Each structure stands twice: as C-alpha cells, then as structure tokens.
Computed example of a mutant assay.
Amino acid sequence: MPHTKIFDQNVEAYEQWYEDYPQVFESELLAIKEQFQKLPENLHGIEVGLGTGKFSVPLGIKEGVEPAKEMAALAVKRGISVVDGYAEQLPFGDLKFDFVLFVTICHLDNFKYALAEANRVLKRKGTILIGFLDKERSVAKQYIENRHRSTFFANANFYTVSRIQTLLKEAGFIDLVFNQTLFGLLDEIKEIQIPKEGFGEGSFVVVKATKK
C-alpha cells in the first residue's frame, strides 16, 4: 500500500524512464510478447499493477488493476479499462480470466497473496505471466546498491528465479517456461535485444505458467 503514494506523486518521472531507456523497454516488451505468442488468440485477461498502461497498450490488454489513481488516469486516457484495487485482493470473481500478467512484482506488498489471488481469478488451465528483475543479475543489483537514492526502488522487493519457481508451485501453477533479456547494465543497452530461452544470463526474466 505505501508504494501507491510514491507512484501517484511521480507519474512524470515514471514516464520519463521509458523515454530515457527505450531499448530497455522494447527488449522487455519483446520478451513478454514472445511468451504471449504461445497462447491461443482472443483470450480475456488483465494486467495487475498496470501503472500508466505502458505494457498493456502494446500487448493489446484492455483491462487491468492499478491502485495509484494518477497512474490509472493516464492508463484510462490510453484506452485501458482500469479497476481500482490491489494485487493481494483482486476485485474480481472466481474463474474469470484466461490470463493474468504481472510486470511490477517488486512493488507488491505480498507477492505470495498476489499469486493466490491470480490463481483464484484464473479459469482452469489459465495462464499466469510474470516479468521480473532477477535479484541475482546486474540490473537488480544496480537498483539494490542505489536504493537509498531511488524514488521507485527504495522499498522494492526483488526475487531470485528459484524463489519465483517455489512460490508459483506453492500457489498451484505448473509447466513453467522461462525466457530472458537485458544482457548488460541499463546504460549499456543501446539496441533492442532478442530474448533467449531460460534464465541465468539476462536481468529481466519472463515466466509463463499454467493453473492446475
């Protein structure tokens, strides 16, 4: 919950990051798209913690959840239907969606609760997709080292891939598939990077898993 105020007060700075690191953003987006392409077409899903809609719009996601009102207002202007709510208590009924996407798990209060909620709102055999910064790779280490002077990452919780694997399995997800991107430090990435399978090299990892 405390993260919401930080994002509401710094929308312009949030948007500026995407202007400063366009190749980083496009590389992350490409990795997520690669996982999306493995899904059937015309699925109904949401992004949880969608911010200003930077990922939802190019991914064609029309609906999602965002608790920061100023961020949500900008997402609405971009054509997203935004519901006020938190990942740990999603304002939807059971078995409603074909997929749920997370790209901001480091800012969640309790990711374990968020996974339980994602499982609840997903249809049987539904898909969860999670884009995250691997705690053991260079970009997350960079943010952790400089968190004392960071607007957005001062209280961020980063996860290792092994921790994500454990939490997903505990939450009732199977068939985990990984890809990765961001090979190098942020300021070194000047071209859009093609994602690789697996994990262990790139700082940004995307995992796709299926609800049992």
Rank of each mutant, 00 (worst) to 15 (best):
L74H: 08
T52H: 03
I164G: 02
G85V: 09
L43D: 08
E15R: 14
E12P: 12
R120D: 01
I174F: 14
K38M: 14
S27N: 03
H107N: 11
V24M: 06
Y86P: 10
A31G: 01
A87I: 00
K5D: 11
V100G: 02
G198S: 05
F7H: 00
F132Q: 03
Y143D: 04
D134W: 06
I32V: 06
A209Y: 03
K62V: 09
P40E: 07
N42M: 08
L182N: 00
K33E: 15
V103Q: 15
E34T: 11
F97E: 01
D109Q: 15
E145T: 12
V206T: 06
Q193M: 06
A118K: 09
T151D: 10
F99T: 09
T181C: 00
I105E: 04
A154T: 13
A72S: 04
I61W: 00
M71L: 01
F92P: 00
G60R: 05
H44S: 12
T210Q: 13
E201I: 07
S138A: 13
D175S: 10
K54T: 09
K33V: 09
V103F: 15
K169D: 08
P2H: 08
V76I: 11
G131L: 01
I105D: 05
G60W: 07
K141G: 06
T127M: 14
E15F: 15
A68M: 10
P58T: 06
A171T: 05
D134F: 04
L186E: 02
T104V: 08
N10L: 03
K77Y: 09
T166R: 10
K123M: 07
D84R: 13
V76H: 14
L167P: 10
P195I: 02
P67S: 03
V121Q: 06
E12Q: 10
A114T: 07
N42F: 12
L168W: 02
Y21L: 06
I164R: 01
V100A: 04
F152H: 02
L122M: 02
G64I: 04
E70Q: 06
F7E: 03
L74A: 13
L176T: 01
L133T: 05
A116M: 10
G85C: 07
G45N: 08
I174R: 13
E170T: 15
H3K: 11
Q180F: 01
K77T: 11
K69V: 14
S203R: 06
R163E: 14
V103S: 14
I194T: 10
A116P: 14
G184L: 09
